[in-house]
């Protein structure tokens, strides 16, 4: 029985390896951009005005995908909240207090890391980074906050409001694009500005900041759910 099972596994993995090997042997490295990417590289600067072409694709050309992605993340957080709601996390044994090093370090570092996160998503159209990365960094700040004050309760309310308001504003700006510019999530509501400055590329900085706040609130929500069920419960 065991031999049968492991030989079946070997056959599946061997078939996969053979397929991968064929893919590798026939792969030739590319020498130039394909048509779509060349269009983005040539026209993207004058059409969108963002220095970071990845940002202009994520926010403007494929903006609807970003909206769907944020929705998927919201649904994930909601399902995790629903599933973990029945787990009671009342601690009976008190936790050890956080050490003085951690408390002091957190007090100094939380503002700095928050500032880096905000810098990354506001400058998303000029330098590497953007909403997703900045949101992840904000969520890391939230982990540090939870680590340093392990005994107090933290409510969901601020996170929920941040998420709801930024999501609604994201859709509102998208609809404004239909009315004032060419289509849904078009960024030419404002003028494009001078290339390479902070206030350029139309609505891209605003949209990416909203995405950053929303992703940060969602990831923080997931982490908060997992934090609240910790401890040994009595039932």
């Amino acid at each position: 029985m065991k031999i049968l099972r492991s030989s079946a596994l070997l056959i599946v993995v061997g078939f996969m390896a053979w397929m991968m090997f064929n893919l590798y042997v026939t792969y030739d490295s590319r020498t130039e951009l394909n048509d779509v990417a060349a269009y983005y590289a040539e026209e993207g600067l004058s059409e969108v005005g963002a220095a970071n072409l990845v940002t202009s694709i994520v926010v403007t050309y494929r903006g609807l995908d970003t909206l769907g992605e944020v929705t998927i993340l919201f649904l994930t957080a909601a399902i995790i909240g629903l599933l973990l709601k029945t787990e009671k996390g009342t601690r009976t044994t008190p936790v050890r207090e956080s050490s003085e090093f951690l408390m002091t370090g957190a007090r100094i570092l939380i503002p700095v890391i928050t500032m880096i996160g905000v810098y990354i998503f506001i400058n998303g159209h000029l330098s590497p980074g953007g909403g997703f990365q900045g949101g992840a960094i904000l969520a890391s700040t939230f982990i540090l906050l939870l680590m340093s004050i392990s005994n107090k309760k933290i409510g969901h309310r601020l996170l929920d409001y941040t998420e709801a308001i930024s999501g609604l504003s994201f859709i509102l700006i998208g609809v404004l694009g239909i009315i004032l510019a060419a289509g849904f999530l078009d960024n030419k509501i404002f003028s494009l500005g001078t290339f390479g400055t902070l206030l350029s590329a139309g609505t891209i900085p605003i949209i990416y900041s909203l995405v950053g706040l929303k992703v940060g609130a969602e990831l923080s929500n997931i982490i908060l759910e997992f934090n609240q069920i910790q401890g040994d419960e009595d039932h």
């Binding site: 890391i113 880096i116 980074g129 960094i137």
Partner: peptide
């Protein structure tokens, strides 16, 4: 690319 290393440096200990 130095931006990436800043993010590493500030997040590595969490």
């Amino acid at each position: 690319y130095v931006d990436v290393s800043i993010v590493y440096a500030i997040l590595s200990f969490i």
